[in-house]
């Protein structure tokens, strides 16, 4: 869907982005991860031509974006900024309506679509006529997301979209983000410096440093097959938590025994990660949890079985 080929961006002597390439599949959620100043934003902005690359090319659906009108290109790409970039002189409704108006939608269509998004993003329609400075940070961020989604663009670029939020708000927005059907259909490139966020939201992650991509792969790839110490060190501090988040119950399914007990707690899907499994013990306060795979196979397991399977899995990864 999106193909980035050997792009570089030099600001004078600074090589902000240095010959990087990656591809994003349709409906995939790719994370650009790295410390501040490593070139993530620059990379992202080259995709909607807010910045023109020094060299290299970018293709969306096989078309070189350099051949398109920048305005036309941008109207087909949603963009969410860290500090939301809402227009302070527009109401919420007017902010959301910016792109539809550029696309010359009629009033009714704009109003309907706005109402739909407000509901999906759990925003009361009372806010439609408020100005951005009358809203909380979390609400502003949602409006920023609504503005980017309103014309249902196939591609969404997000630059540290949750960076300005406190941890509690961020966690709840992460949940909504994953649950939002609008986003499931989209090809998303998201920039973050937060490893947890990257592992939580990303299908694949490009770990960047000093303008280059150090590793690009799934969260488990980063955890269990790092090409060098940089990646290892980058993940070191939060390794255990990351592993719980990266490994799905499905990955260790074969290593899990079935205790054949009866269990009252709600069944969780094997598609969820280990972290969710562990949380289930806490929420239900029971000795065992039940996990279902493909709706038909169900295993009842205890905490020890889960941890033992996890350790076996890790050992296996280490030997590959």
């Amino acid at each position: 869907m999106i193909k980035v080929k050997d792009i570089s961006k030099h600001f004078g002597k600074v090589k902000a982005v240095d010959t990087i390439s990656f591809e994003v599949q349709e409906q995939e959620n790719l994370i650009l991860l790295g410390t501040s100043g490593c070139g993530k934003t620059t990379t992202l902005k080259m995709i909607n031509r807010l910045i023109e690359p020094t060299s290299g090319s970018i293709f969306i659906n096989g078309k070189n974006i350099a051949d398109e009108q920048p305005e036309t290109l941008r109207r087909g790409i949603g963009y969410v900024l860290q500090n939301n970039g809402l227009f302070p002189h527009y109401t919420v409704a007017e902010n959301i309506a910016v792109v539809p108006q550029l696309l010359k939608w009629d009033k009714k269509k704009i109003a309907d679509r706005t109402a739909e998004l407000m509901e999906k993003l759990h925003l009361s329609s009372d806010y439609l006529h408020a100005y951005p400075n009358e809203l909380s940070g979390g609400q502003q961020q949602r409006i920023g997301l609504a503005r980017a989604l309103v014309s249902d663009p196939p591609v969404l670029l997000m630059d540290e979209p949750f960076g300005a939020l406190d941890n509690v708000t961020r966690a709840s927005i992460h949940k909504e983000f994953k649950a939002l059907d609008e986003l499931k259909r989209k090809t998303i490139i998201m920039v973050t410096h937060d490893v947890q966020e990257a592992f939580e939201l990303g299908d694949r992650i490009c770990l960047m440093d000093k303008g280059k991509i150090i590793q690009s792969g799934t969260p488990t790839d980063l955890l269990f097959s790092p090409p060098n110490n940089f990646v290892k060190d980058f993940l070191k501090d939060q390794r255990l938590q990351l592993e719980f988040k990266a490994i799905r119950l499905l990955d260790i399914w074969d290593l899990l025994p079935d205790l054949h007990k009866t269990d009252q707690s709600p069944t969780i899907s094997a598609n969820t990660n280990l972290w969710t499994g562990l949380e289930q013990f806490k929420f239900t306060d029971s000795e065992t949890i039940s996990i279902s795979k493909d709706q038909n196979e169900i295993k009842i397991i205890g905490f020890e079985q889960l941890m033992s399977a996890f350790n076996q899995y890790k050992n296996k990864q280490g030997h590959e």
């Binding site: 109207r75 963009y79 939301n84 970039g85 809402l86 227009f87 910016v98 792109v99 550029l102």
Partner: peptide, 15 residues
């Protein structure tokens, strides 16, 4: 005018 606001406007495809 806030650079972020101008950038948002550009990014949304305004001329």
């Amino acid at each position: 005018v806030d650079a972020a606001v101008k950038e948002a406007a550009t990014a949304m495809g305004m001329s």
